[in-house]
Amino acid sequence: MIDSKDMQVIGLCRFSYPALGGFQVEHDTIEDRIAFLYQEDRLEERFQLMETVALPCLKAQTDQNFEMILLIGDTLTKRHVERLHDLTTDIPQITIVAHPPEPHRPLMKKLLNGARKDPKAPCLQFRHDDDDAISVDFFERLRAAAEDVAPLLPQHRTVAFDWNRGYIAEMSSAGIAAADTVRNLYVASLGMYVRGGCDLTIMNFRHGIMNQFMPTLSFTDTPMWVRTHNGYNDSRQKKVKPVPVTPLTGEEAAQFKSRFAIDADQVRTVFA
């Protein structure tokens, strides 16, 4: 019987990494992509979102037994690299890794497989976007879900776990505006079991269609993620239908702080 408490939990987050491929918005050359990703106003927004949204929820996890690779480009300027190290210094689970531009999926798979302490043992994997938040009990719930379906796991190379209730949110100097929603197979709060001896990773699959390749369990009982809409969402650079959001009520602001470690006062200060 598989014991989820012993499973290694490994994740990957890309911070403005100039991959070859992997973006919905295309660029003619890798130089054009780097210039786009490293625009000062874009990077400032990414840092603001990392500081207020993507990192606090990791620091506050009820289960601290996880590891995350934070991937950056090897040409990211020194002051930005130092700023990133400063923001993550109190989250020892994060390892910052710098790489030159490489084909997107092969590199992501190599990094995740390289992080496995024992490739013959099963593990749990996740992805984390630098502008999204997961609930503070995500890893606790991921392990519990794997435990609940333990007899199912050895029969499959991979199994997905999808918490599909959350918030679309916009951050600004005015605070937080959001809309609660249910969306299947978002990146945030999506986990995957990988059988021992299998070299598939969560980055082998487009997140939105993972259920076409493996058994997928969905949970809708409580909000588990915050996805921010901002000036540089890759998936929203093309014409898409806007999502109407409204300022958080006092009760919702309290929930954002307790469920996601997102502090509305900090958001107002950082985005001012």
Rank of each mutant, 00 (worst) to 15 (best):
L124K: 00
M171V: 02
R165P: 03
L185G: 03
F139R: 07
I94E: 03
F139C: 06
F126A: 00
P122F: 14
D148V: 05
T158H: 01
P151A: 04
K110H: 15
I176E: 01
A145H: 03
T181Y: 10
M108G: 09
I176R: 07
A145N: 06
I168S: 12
A144M: 13
D137N: 15
P106A: 11
D118M: 03
L152S: 04
A133C: 10
A160T: 06
D137V: 10
F126R: 01
A146K: 07
W163M: 14
R157F: 05
P122I: 06
A160E: 09
F138Y: 15
R105V: 14
S172H: 14
K109L: 06
A169C: 02
A115S: 13
V187I: 15
A133R: 07
A146L: 13
R141L: 14
K120M: 13
D180E: 15
T181G: 02
S172Y: 11
A150K: 06
D180M: 15
P154W: 00
A174V: 06
V149G: 00
A169H: 03
E102L: 15
Q125R: 07
Q125W: 08
D162V: 00
A115N: 00
A144K: 12
K110A: 15
G175D: 06
A169V: 03
L107Y: 11
A169Y: 00
F138E: 12
F161K: 10
P151L: 08
A174K: 15
L107D: 10
I94Y: 03
P103H: 13
P119N: 08
K117A: 11
A160L: 05
A98D: 04
H156I: 01
R116C: 10
L124A: 01
T158R: 10
A98N: 01
I96G: 06
R157K: 11
I168N: 04
L185V: 05
F138N: 06
P119C: 02
D118H: 14
L153I: 06
E147P: 00
L185D: 09
L112D: 09
Y186A: 01
A174H: 14
M108Q: 12
G114H: 10
A169W: 03
P103G: 00
N184T: 07
R143L: 08
P119I: 08
P101I: 05
L185F: 15
N184S: 13
C123W: 12
A121S: 15
D132L: 05
L142P: 04
I134K: 02
N164C: 09
E140F: 02
I176T: 01
D137C: 11
D180K: 14
P151V: 09
H99E: 15
L124M: 01
P101A: 13
T158Q: 08
N113A: 05
P151Q: 09
I168H: 14
E170N: 00
R141V: 02
V159S: 09
F139M: 05
P122C: 04
Q155F: 08
